[in-house]
Each structure stands twice: as C-alpha cells, then as structure tokens.
Nucleic acid binder design. Structure first.
Lengths: 334, 334
DNA sequence: TCTTTCTATGACAGCGGTTTCAAAACTCCT
DNA sequence: AGGAGTTTTGAAACCGCTGTCATAGAAAGA
C-alpha cells in the first residue's frame, strides 16, 4: 500500500523542479530534451499517474462533464448515455453520471452532487427539473438538454421530429388500408408524447379520417402500461385494426396483450412503435417503428456541449426520424 | 457568471475563520451555537456549496467509487450498474462509470482514468482485464469483481450459481418430456458460459440422457449470435425439441429465428434463457428463464465494497438463481 | 569579447478545502 | 480573586499540481 508518487517525487528522482515535471506533463512550454527524457524515465520508473483531482483544483477546470439521467437500467437512457460517452471520446472530457430515478428529490440531489464536483458542463437527459433552475445553472456552466424543452433555452435543447415521425408512422398504416387506428400515447406532461400524439392526429386528419377519442389511451412509456392500455382499449369495445404506440416499450406490452388475447400481429392487428430500441429488431415479429437514434442524439448532445465549452453556439441539429418497416405491420384484411 | 463562493467568503461574511466554517461543514469538532448559526446563515445567503474536488484533495479521499463497465447501452450491464448505484445510495460514496466497450485498449484507458481520478474503490463488471493487473490494483484500493473470477482474489468476486441454475433449467425441460435439448452457449472464455454449459451437461447426464456435441453451438451472448446459432443448429439436421440458451439476449435471437422458420414456441420447440432481463417478461411468449437478479448483484457488490472500505472482509454472498417458468416452455408433443 | 535576445528552469504563490497546534476564552473550584 | 481544566477559535501548513515571474544560461549580434 505504498503511497502514490507525486510530482515532487518525480522531480527529485529526475533532478529537476516540480515545475519542470508539470511542464513535460502538460507540454505547456518547452523543456530541454535531456531533462524531459529524465522526467519521462522517472515517471515510467515510479509508475506515476498525475492526480487529476489536484490538477482540476489547480486549473479550475475538472474536465468532467456531468450527465443527469433518470435510470441506468432503462434501455432508452442507456443508449442515450452511451451516445454521449461516444461523442465525448476524443475530447479530453470525461463524463460522470448521476441518476434521478424519476423522483424530484433524488434528481435534485444528483444535480447538487454533480455541481459540487465542479463539472465543467452538464447534459440533462429528460427528467422534470424546473426550467428556472436549469436556466440558472446555465448561467454558471454550459448545459444541453435532451428529451425536454427548456423555455428560454430552446437552442440548448436537442429537438426530435416527433410529430413528423408519428405522422409518418400513421400514414404508413393508412397506406396499408387501416382506417381504425388506435394510439397509446405517452405521459401527457412529456412534450415528446404530446408531439407524437399531434402527429398521429394530423395524419388521420390529412387522410380525411376522423379522430376518435375512444381510440386513444394514455400510457406512461412502460411495457406494463402498454399492456394495460391494450386492455382498456379492448374493454371499450371500439373496433381497430392497428395501433400506434408512443414508444417501443409500450409496443412490447401491447404485443404481449394481443398475444394473450389470441390476436395475431400483423395478421389481426398491425403495430408500430417509436424509438427503435436495440431490441426491437428481435421481437416477434420484428417491430415496425419510428427510428430516432438515441446513440446519435447522445453524440449530438455531446458535440453541442463541446461547442459551448469552446465558446461557440451549441449548433444542435434537429434530429430526424425515419420509419423502419419491419414485420409488425401488414395490409389490413379485406 | 459570478464565481462560486468559497469558505473564505463565508468566513468573512460570518466573521469567523475559515477553519470554523470547515468545522461546521464537517462537524469535525464543536463550534459555538451562535457562530455556527452565523455560518449557516452565510452559507444559505451565498448559496454556498463546498467544492468536493478541493475537499477530496485535502482529505486524501475522493468518496468516489469507480465502476468499470463494458457498455452503458447493454441491458445486462445497465441493470448491474443500477444495482451498484442503489447499493451505494445511503453511504456517502458516489459512483462514476467508465466503459471499456469490450476492447482491451479502451478498458485500460477507462481504468487509468478512474485511478487517476483517485477513486477510493473499484467495482469491475466483467471485461477481460488481466488478473495480475487487478490483483495489483487491489493492493492500492479495494476492489470487487462481478461476472468474472480473479485468481487469487476469489473472495472479492461475486459468484453466481451458474451451474446450478443451468441444471435447473434443463431439468425443467427434461421433466416436460424433452429428450433432445440443444444448448446455445456463451463465449467459452467466459467463466459464466462454461459453468452454464457444465450445468446443462450434468442435467442431461443425471437424467441418463446422452450429451450430444452436435446439439450445442457457441454464441457470443448477443441476439444476433442467437439467431445465427439457431441457423447452425438447424443446418446440422439433428432433431431437438427444446433449446437452452446461455442468456436471454441469445434466446431472443433464437426465438426470432424460430419464428422465421415457422416454428412455434412453445408448441414446436421450448425455449429457456438465462438472466431474466427486465424485458423477458414481455417477449412473446414471455420467456422461461433462469433468474439472476442483476440489480441484486449490483447491490451485493456495492455492499461488499463498502465493507472493504470499512476494513472488513467483503463478505460477498453466493448469489442464487431461480427458474422462472413463463410461457416459452411446454410439454413435448406426443 | 561584450552586449543583447531568447529560452529553459526553479521558486513561489495559489486552487479551496481540512487539520493540527497552540493560544484565547470560558468554565468551575478553592 | 487566582489557578486549573475545558472548550472554542484562528493561524498556518498542507493535499498535489499549475502557472506566473524572475533569473540563469545559451545563442546571436556587434
């Protein structure tokens, strides 16, 4: 359990001053090749690793960016997180995660911790921390949000073409001859859910189809809620031949409910989701869904933050969605 | 962009010395109620938040524990990570993640970063970092491993009853009348995969059934590889009525392959997985699988590390598995 | 050869906390 | 009131590294 060597140890061994060691470490200014070599040798010999904590304190920059997420176990957030991590690799920033578990208090605690750790930037993944707080934080350190819209900070929020994606999905169903299309929406408080629902309604209207309130039921983005929503739909006794779910997870739940009722997909009812999670290509049948690459979004967010950190405008693109047609949708039965 | 207040600012405002501020912050020694109140008021007023980086440097402890994982997007590692996080909550330790993306170089880099950040402890989730390195690291800071076995550090490794779990799964199949049971194994370099395969063979042998090499094919734990494995199996032309997959993800792939071939689950072939990922209850049909709660494992690992940090033996339990019978297995057809 | 420029280097002062140590301020007794 | 025994408090050193600044040396010009 020998103590970690420090710059002074290296300095002593290499017969130079700590400053010089620091210089070869950071390359901040030239040092004589011979000394440089000596330092490097000492570093090698003692297996020295600069203490980033000390460096952060001295420099006033931690080179860490904080990711405020909701859950590490969720497929959705996991992919997003991975994307951010990828986007940051190559830069000298590292990321640390803190999750809010969809609870206000925990989210606040997580945020405080991140801030106390002196993160140089922040990426907020969903959640419902008040806009005002986030605005205030943005005064201190750059911030990017994904999956939520902060009033007054629109250009720091990564926006997805939710309505257009939903429109496409429903249009696809309509083209297959479906007229009675149900929608299992997401949490209404969530902007993505509202936009997707709007896209659903627009597609119907555009095709001259009526929007029937009885055909839409609200879920909460979980598989469980998809299953429940399907039950509710069935209980209403209204006819439908296709369902558009506001996300893939709910589509999975719906698919199970259908299976339980002996309804086949896509023969009896067509099903389309939204997200295109990694697993959606492997459901049975593979799910037709609106793809919004979370990996890509994470990367965009990271890049945006890097821009901000370099004093440039975030320059976030609007992320497009595309319909990936697999096997859960089919022409309506005659 | 006003600078963050520091202890000195608080000290000045509260008319005390920085030492006293530190004392009320840490409660390390008693301070006069009146002064304490003044300090607290100043903290409140300036919205002061101690700089954890500075504190870590001063105390020589970061209160951070590092999690070396492989991928944030993977369901499996995500659940594990979540478990660790949960296990740590309540303690004053925080965790930071670094992922190796299943690449030696990236893993090494991630590990270096964690160490440079002065983590107080380390939890290694899978990966294939050489045992020797890990042993060396354990000399410096406490370490716990999940999903791998480090020679010479067995009691720091969380062990799962893989063989017993696999045995149970196959036994279940045998009880349902299956005689020709295929196995899609995991990466042989992975101890879990080897143990599960052993359990499979033991169950067969115990029941007096032959172990047929042609019935087992090696996958790499991904859905894709499950699909491929099934193709390989089918191509061999050997008959089987059930498949035991070494993990759920491969089971998903197999299930899709079966669907593609028009083979019904469980009517034509029974399928059982291993892990019980969150999504496995929502596949069609819901997957019969061997449950090993990753959340729980994460929690155990965290608790073990906390023990180590408190200079106690890690005291890791051996994690049991249990068969959860859902709808992907059925009595063999007459 | 003696200035005049540069360049490489070391001393030193932080960064924002914590902690030790000794002095100061109160107790409580006699 | 005087002294011993407790608290409470501030000064100062330190954690490990960086960056500024002044100086010593080397190179260049006269």
């Amino acid at each position: 359990m020998a103590k970690q060597p420090t710059v002074s140890d290296i300095a002593r061994l290499a017969q130079v001053s700590p400053s010089t060691v620091s210089r070869v470490l950071t390359g901040s200014s030239p040092v004589h090749p011979a000394k440089s070599a000596a330092v490097l040798a000492a570093i090698e010999r003692l297996n020295f690793r600069p203490n980033l904590t000390a460096r952060a304190l001295a420099r006033g920059k931690s080179m860490v960016i904080g990711i405020l997420t909701q859950s590490m176990a969720s497929q959705f957030y996991g992919e997003l997180a991975q994307g951010v991590e990828e986007g940051l690799s190559g830069s000298s920033y590292q990321c640390v995660f803190a999750s809010g578990h969809w609870e206000r208090a925990a989210e606040q605690a997580a945020l405080d911790l991140l801030l106390a750790r002196q993160v140089d930037g922040l990426i907020v993944l969903g959640g419902d921390h008040p806009d005002a707080d986030l605005l205030a934080i943005n005064e201190q350190i750059p911030l990017i949000a994904v999956g939520r819209l902060i009033a007054g900070l629109e250009d720091h929020c990564l926006r997805v073409e939710n309505a257009a994606g939903a429109f496409q999905a429903v249009q696809h169903l309509i083209e297959l001859g479906h007229r009675r299309i149900a929608h299992v929406s997401g949490i209404a408080a969530h902007i993505d859910a509202r936009e997707r629902r709007r896209g659903y309604e627009q597609a119907l209207t555009t095709a001259g189809l009526p929007v029937d309130e009885r055909l839409v039921v609200e879920g909460n983005f979980t598989e469980q809620s998809g299953l429940l929503a399907l039950e509710a739909l069935l209980a209403r006794g209204v006819h439908f031949s296709a369902i558009f779910a506001a996300n893939d997870q709910m589509a999975y739940g719906i698919r199970l409910g259908l299976y339980r009722r002996g309804l086949r997909v896509p023969e009896d009812v067509s099903l389309v989701g939204f997200d295109d999670l990694l697993g959606s290509a492997y459901t049975t049948p593979p799910l037709t869904t609106v793809r919004q690459s979370m990996l890509e979004q994470g990367r965009y967010a990271a890049r945006g933050l890097l821009n901000l950190l370099a004093d440039m405008p975030p320059n976030l693109p609007r992320v497009a969605t595309d319909l990936v047609i697999r096997e859960s949708t089919a022409r309506v039965r005659g």
